[in-house]
Write a protein that binds this DNA or RNA. Structure first.
Length: 572
DNA sequence: CCGGCGACTTAGCAGGCAACTG
DNA sequence: CAGTTGCCTGCTAAGTCGCCGG
């Protein structure tokens, strides 16, 4: 693999190289912070069953409070949520409770719910001093547990707090919503650190499940979660060397794809004609992944997760073929739920050969059948590996996102614009990528209102501008008559006032446009995960835009490597 | 080739908090 | 200086992909 070596001196991103697979030589940390223990409700907070007060055992009460805290949420009304919750709740009950509490609808959590609302309210009303005290306690925790030493560096840990118990929600229509996410104990925890480090001590009276010294992985702590049975990890912050290097590598792989993408495109176009159905399916799927930035689409276990798909797992029911639509030929209409149950809806004109292939793949199939029945992500990725070392399906998303940003920035940046307008151009370029990657968000709850506020500000500013212009005009007239220094000065200051207001108005209008266009688009995901930060750094340098306008503090920390490296002439 | 597991990246959302405004 | 707003951070779910054993 070709690694570009940056010339600057002692840059930490390329300090040391490790032998294949070795991630560190020394690792020391303090272990995780556990969720605070359950505090039983005060005596006066009651739970009612079938209209009668009932005192719950501590364990049953704790789980009941999880439900009570969610009472205002729509999902406590969902059948699956209620069913799963009730089943798991009953497991925590004493046999006596179990025989009494047989119907969730007869459970009255409203008093408990009110109590928690009052608590939240009280927390808001806390004095400055009390709030300060909590803040200091959090800082102390961060200082003690939030950092580790990996090789020669003190590094920030991403998530050093263990997830507290609660009710699982999941995204979209998740079959396990409402299940009890159990409390994680030290006995569930595997500690990973180096042999010669100070090994973290478990809480008094407890033991770790295991302490291991595996320097082929990057995690510090792991445990198995009880909803899906998957492993959760405590790992380092994105600002760390280990994450930064990996991130850099990712973009370097995408840049290698840039060099051979034309060849790959020609190849899959050829493959559309293959006599082997598997090859044709692979080629059409790759075309979608490349053109539409779809995810690979691994198979999922039915009934274990929400029904979502990616490219390889698309079903016949997810696309519609239109030989002609709105004056365009060979249009494919996509409608499916992707990652996080975010809807992907798109009407795309495709090449005739793709269209004909799709018709072929759909022949004699039911709506719920796989579109690409001869294909999966493993087959696809093996093929991609043959085309380029390190190439997988997701690299196309990175590549297309980054190249789109670079192109869009070139196209949209107007050298004569002021900083605010240039930033609007940047956001528009970023937005083009977010749309490509289908990064959506729920419109902010206060969107309409805040838009109206902004509009009235703009209107007010316009009037102010008109006034200022009138004043300037009369000052000018005045100066013509008087011809003295004082009135000349007045004209100058009025001119400046007009200019200032014009700028303010322009800024507001830019802001309004930006916000409107951003209503349902999330920019941060692409910014954080798909856009080679060196493109943005170079753009800032080229146009004299302060990097703070593009990246906030966290983002600057994550992309420190790029801010270090990239010059204004950087090309992705 | 298949299924399951492990490690890691990518994802949207809620709530808190700092900055702005009136 | 209080109230509001909008951004940021933390949280944790949900993907991708490689590997292993059968």
């Amino acid at each position: 693999e070709v690694v570009l070596i940056h010339i600057a001196v002692s840059c930490r991103w390329e300090e040391e190289r490790y032998p294949e697979g070795i991630k560190w030589k020394f690792l020391e940390h303090k272990g995780p912070v556990f969720a605070p223990p359950y505090e039983p409700l005060p005596e006066n907070v009651k739970f009612y069953y079938d209209g009668k007060v009932m005192k719950l055992s501590t364990k049953a009460e704790e789980v009941a409070t999880f439900f009570a805290k969610m009472l205002d949420h729509e999902y406590t009304t969902k059948e699956i949520f209620r069913k799963n919750f009730f089943k798991d709740w009953r497991k925590e009950m004493t046999s006596e409770e179990k025989s009494t509490i047989t119907n969730l609808s007869k459970c009255d959590f409203t008093h408990m719910s009110q109590y928690f609302k009052a608590q939240t309210e009280a927390r808001k009303q806390m004095s400055k001093e009390e709030k300060q005290k909590i803040k200091e306690e959090n800082e102390r925790l961060l200082k003690e547990y939030g950092y580790c030493v990996m090789d020669n560096h003190k590094e920030r840990i991403a998530n050093f707090k263990i997830e507290p118990p609660g009710l699982f929600r999941g995204r979209g229509n998740h079959p396990k919503m409402g299940m009890l996410k159990r409390r994680i104990m030290p006995e569930d925890i595997i500690i990973n650190c180096s042999k010669d480090s100070k090994i973290p001590a478990p809480p008094p009276g407890h033991k770790w499940k295991e302490v291991r010294h595996d320097n082929k992985v990057t995690w510090l702590v792991s445990w198995t979660e009880n909803i899906q049975g998957s492993i959760k990890y405590i790992m380092l912050n994105p600002s760390s060397r280990i994450k930064g290097e990996k991130d850099w590598q990712k973009y370097e792989t995408a840049r290698r794809l840039k060099k051979c993408v034309d060849k790959i495109r020609n190849q899959y176009r050829e493959d559309w004609k293959s006599k082997e159905m598997k090859v044709r399916q692979r080629a059409v799927a790759l075309y979608f992944i490349d053109k539409l930035a779809l995810r690979a689409g691994n198979e999922k276990e039915e009934g274990e997760t929400a029904d979502t798909v990616g490219c390889c797992s698309l079903r016949v029911e997810h696309i519609k073929l239109h030989p002609e639509l709105d004056g365009q030929e060979y249009v494919v209409e996509f409608d499916f739920l992707g990652k996080d149950s975010i809807r992907y809806y798109n009407k795309v004109p495709v090449e005739k050969r793709v269209f004909k292939n799709l018709q072929l793949f759909m022949e004699n199939k039911q709506p719920e059948d796989d579109l690409f029945d001869r294909l999966n992500t493993s087959i696809l990725n093996k093929h991609l590996q043959d085309l380029m070392e390190g190439l997988t399906a997701k690299v196309f998303r990175t590549y297309n996102a980054s190249i789109t940003l670079q192109q869009q920035l070139k196209e949209l940046t107007n050298p004569d614009d002021n900083v605010a307008a240039k930033i609007l151009s940047y956001n528009r370029a970023n937005r083009a990528v977010a749309i490509l990657c289908n990064h959506q968000r729920a419109p902010p709850k206060t969107f309409e209102k805040s838009m109206m506020n902004l509009q009235s500000k703009i209107d007010a500013k316009k009037e102010q501008l008109a006034d200022a212009r009138r004043e300037l005009k009369s000052a000018k007239a005045d100066a013509k008559v008087r011809r003295d220094e004082k009135s000349k000065k007045t004209v100058e200051s009025k001119k400046k006032a007009v200019q200032r207001i014009e700028e303010q108005l322009m800024k507001l209008e830019v802001q309004a446009t930006d916000r409107e266009e951003n209503k349902q688009i999330a920019l941060s995901t692409s910014k954080l995960n798909y856009l080679d930060p060196r493109i943005s750094v170079a753009w800032c340098k080229k146009w004299g835009i302060p990097i703070e306008k593009i990246y906030n503090k966290t983002q600057r920390e994550k992309f420190a490597w790029a801010i270090d490296m990239a010059e204004e002439d950087y090309e992705f």
